[in-house]
Write a protein that binds this DNA or RNA. Structure first.
Length: 872
DNA sequence: ATCGAGTTCCC
DNA sequence: CGGGAACTCGA
């Protein structure tokens, strides 16, 4: 087609469509003229008597601007859904409908709207979907034509359109239909009588075939083009086509709206790694990310990170279980508000952002923190500001300068001078004060916490305990009337997170302040209550003492009546907390020494201390727990695992070894999924899989125990029957439970090194257990007990691979259902088969030799003959 | 055969 | 309308 009309693609005109509309509102009328030639002439002429403002816009070729884009999201409907009304394609502003205007043209023309592919940068082709237009209860297929003229200000308004999702099976036909029409129209522009020749028809079919597979069915665009009809009734385009932006299918996981529906919790520790369950609208598991980000005051993103999860953590397109990433700043002392949103890599779409909060770590002091140098003075300067009510310079000085012995004497004196209420006399009598104070004073640290605040703005928080203590001292010195009451009030004061002074001092590692607070507390009538007070996350001072790995303080707290079994909001007792910290074994021991501690207690997730310790790999804690009498065969309530499962899962070889060697843990215990520790070891992805398997096998793990994992193929069907036969034979083998599932052995099928471990063990010990399982009688004792070693197996497998004899062998052994397994999974199919025969003790070497001869594998048979003669 | 994802239909 | 679920299809 000759390029008579060139595009007018000035960006300015595109973006200034609205201004143009205003300027042209008067409209231009010119008497109709027949041909295109005169059309452009008349447009030039008319520009002469148009006002100056319009000059720029009227000179040039006709073009179309889009006054109103269609919405970006629209639900594509199937034909069958088109009963009744479902709303039509509206404009991007949600009110109007798609609208375009023809410029630089003075005759009536028609504007066509059709549906095309949306891939920008690629040639637009007709889309397989339909764009229907409903008018007065009638539906019309695309394309749609609207006549424009000066009366309508050359504006075409496309009402009542909707997009019909062509069914997959009709895509090709629909494409062919549209592509034929397009090709025909093109040809007719030059020759009215033109038809498509068979070569063109064929080409269209080929193209349609191709597009059918690759067309994006969830995105379309509208195509607008203006035409005039010539004398022969042929549509002659007078503008280049212009395309709307993309319209995406609202119902698809690929382009649908991303939405966070619900979240399990909205907070995480700065350390990250916390598991969160999030319910979402339909997503594709391969095409979704969870982004956490922070904005500054100006709304600029200043931090972002992605939640950690795998495809397997996306449940049925509607839920995701992910772990939070660590926050950039581990040292925050106040909650940090950030945002969380879903992000779709394929098109960069994202959901609305939800608020999310990072909480400061409980172990703030556990880490090395950068110390900010305070100008000129000691930390003393931090004490004074908050003292408008009480002039306490003396006390401050006392606190900071006096050696601790002096001060403790001071306190002790105060305490013994009868300031204590009679109620606690009994309690005080019970306490071994000498020991207690020795414990507390057995420290050479300075009075003030060794750690200053890392960030100045949080000094109030950090100084909370110190300020309270200062006030108390002040109060004592002044011997005020309501002193006791006042002190009581001070001790009960709370700071951020509901911290009592004791919590706060512990949280910030101000160990000396802790000690002084404890001295004060021990004489207080509400001592027990105060000691056991819980902050807003339910933690007691004991939790923090343990988190800070302070065995002495832990002990002191216990002496003062701290309840070792009080749990935090997640059901964690101090023991639960302690065993998770690998170097806090001293605290574990202190706790375990406490009578009344419940070592089998479960946290809210259904884990005992032993499970938590195992998960964390805290070897010492495990030993302590076992010594303290923890039941090693106790299972967690969420997965039914013993510590052995958990240890294997975590690859903690040393712990596995300990459990197996030093405890009476049951090696073959199955978890809720029916898996034994050996199953877990076999599928272990780390480098230790083999060692772990060996260890378990050594301690009697049975690789034939099956889990509850029912596979879903023919292979398994057959295997079931196979297994059932086996079970019958070994009916004395207690409780294989007749279940249908995978054994450790099954799981190891494609792991030759692990099979070796299994084999090695059977060569030595298991012939008794798995003897005489086949119809074939075993004749040669030697060959029965000594099967092929690995080297022999490899050599033999080379022979059998060469001739494909392994397939025949498998068939004759009635295990052809495993052919595929061997074929696909083994490095060498024959080796897989041989290992299988070996482990399952299907037949003796002698029989093997016979069988090989029967099936014509002379070379292999000879080889066996050769090695067996060497052996004997 | 079975499962998850995608498609189609129904209310 | 939007939500939901039944159906279908490909791995």
């Amino acid at each position: 087609m000759p390029e008579v009309y060139t595009a007018f693609e000035n960006e300015d005109f595109f973006s200034s469509g609205y201004e143009l509309q205003a300027m042209n509102s008067r409209g231009i009328y010119s008497p109709s003229s027949g041909s295109q030639e005169t059309a452009s002439v008349s447009s030039v002429l008319s520009s002469l008597h148009d006002n100056e403002l319009n000059d720029i816009s009227v000179i040039g070729n006709p073009y179309i601007t889009i006054l109103e884009q269609p919405t970006e999201k629209f639900r594509f409907r199937y034909k069958s859904e088109m009963v009744g009304t479902h709303g039509s394609l509206v404009g991007s502003n949600r009110k109007n409908v798609p609208t375009v205007r023809l410029h630089n043209f003075l005759d009536p023309a028609v504007i066509r709207c059709s549906l095309v592919t949306s891939d920008e940068g690629f040639p637009r082709i007709p889309h397989a979907h339909k764009l229907i237009r409903r008018d007065a209860g009638q539906d019309y297929d695309d394309p749609h034509y609207i006549t424009v003229s000066s009366e309508t200000e050359y504006t075409a308004i496309f009402h009542g359109m909707s997009i019909i999702h062509t069914a997959k099976r009709h895509i090709r036909d629909e494409l062919i239909k549209k592509m034929r029409l397009e090709a025909l129209e093109k040809k007719k522009n030059t020759n009215i009588k033109a038809t498509l020749n068979s070569r063109e028809e064929a080409q269209i079919k080929v193209d349609a075939e191709h597009y059918q597979k690759h067309m994006n069915l969830n995105s379309v665009a509208l195509c607008f083009q203006a035409f005039v009809t010539n004398d022969c009734g042929v549509m002659i385009p007078i503008t280049e086509p212009i395309y709307s932006h993309t319209i995406n299918n609202l119902k698809s996981a690929l382009t649908g709206e991303l939405k966070i529906c619900r979240m399990d919790k909205l907070t995480s520790s700065v350390e990250g790694g916390e598991e969160i369950f999030i319910l979402v609208e339909k997503v594709g598991k391969k095409n979704i990310r969870i982004k956490l980000f922070e904005l500054n005051e100006n709304g600029c993103e200043i931090w972002s990170a992605y939640g950690r999860f795998s495809e397997l953590d996306v449940h049925h397109q509607y839920a995701i279980v992910f772990r939070t990433p660590p926050y950039k700043d581990q040292d925050i002392t106040l909650p940090k508000n950030v945002f969380i949103q879903l992000e779709r890599p394929s098109d960069g779409e994202s959901s609305d952002a939800r608020k999310f909060t990072y909480k400061p770590s409980d172990k703030i002091i556990g880490r090395k923190r950068q110390r900010i140098s305070y100008s000129g003075s000691s930390e003393l300067s931090y004490i004074s500001p908050n003292t408008n009510s009480i002039g306490n310079e003396n006390i401050s000085e006392l606190l900071s300068n006096s050696n601790s012995h002096e001060l403790s004497k001071e306190i002790k004196k105060l305490l013994s001078e009868g300031t204590t209420a009679p109620v606690c006399k009994d309690f005080l009598n019970d306490i071994d004060f000498d020991n207690y104070f020795k414990l507390l004073l057995n420290s050479e640290e300075n009075m003030l916490g060794t750690d200053g605040p890392s960030i100045v703005q949080h000094q109030d928080d950090v100084m909370f305990a110190k300020n309270i203590l200062t006030e108390i001292m002040q109060c004592m010195k002044m011997d005020a009337k309501n002193m006791e009451e006042y002190i009581q009030k001070l001790l009960k004061d709370r700071s951020t997170y509901g911290d009592s002074p004791l919590h706060s001092a512990l949280r910030y590692g101000q160990h000396n302040i802790v000690k002084y607070l404890l001295m004060l507390l021990c004489t207080n009538k509400d001592c027990k209550t105060l000691i056991n007070s819980q902050n807003s996350s339910g933690k007691t001072p004991l939790h923090y003492a343990v988190l800070q790995n302070q065995p002495e303080i832990t002990k002191a707290l216990l002496m003062l009546g701290a309840d070792p079994n009080r749990t935090d909001d997640h059901g964690f007792s101090p023991l639960h907390v302690a065993v998770k910290i690998s170097d806090a074994s001293a605290c574990v021991d202190v706790l375990l020494a406490e009578k009344g501690i419940d070592i089998e207690a479960y946290n809210d997730a259904g884990w005992t201390a032993l499970h938590l310790a195992t998960k964390a790999g805290s070897y010492d804690a495990i030993c302590s727990l076992v010594h303290a009498g923890a039941n090693v065969n106790n299972t967690d309530m969420s997965y039914g695992r013993t510590a052995l499962h958990i240890a294997v899962e975590g690859g903690h070889k040393k712990i596995v070894e300990y459990l197996l060697k030093k405890t009476n843990i049951s090696v073959n215990k199955r978890n809720f999924s029916g898996n034994t520790a050996l199953h877990t070891a076999v599928v272990h992805t780390g480098t230790r899989a083999k060692e772990l398997c060996a260890l378990l096998i050594q301690h009697g793990a049975d690789p034939h125990i099956q889990n509850h994992n029912r596979e879903s193929n023919d292979v398994n069907k057959k295997k079931e029957s196979h297994v059932n036969v086996k079970v019958e034979v070994h009916s004395e083998d207690e409780n294989i439970e007749g279940t249908i599932g995978q054994s450790s052995f099954d799981l190891a099928m494609n792991k030759p090194d692990i099979l070796q471990v299994f084999n090695g063990q059977f060569e030595k010990t298991t012939n008794k257990m798995y003897s005489v399982t086949t119809k074939l009688e075993l004749k040669n004792e030697d060959l029965q007990t000594n099967w092929l070693n690995n080297e022999h197996k490899e050599k033999l497998s080379i022979l059998l691979n060469k001739t494909q004899g392994w397939q025949k062998l498998a068939k004759h052994l009635n295990i052809e259902y495993l052919l595929q397994t061997f074929q696909h999974n083994s490095i060498s199919p024959s080796l897989g088969l041989l290992n299988y025969i070996d482990v399952e003790a299907i037949l003796s070497l002698m029989d093997m030799q016979t069988l090989l001869r029967e099936i014509g594998e002379e070379e292999a048979a000879d080889y066996i003959n050769e090695i067996s003669s060497i052996c004997s």
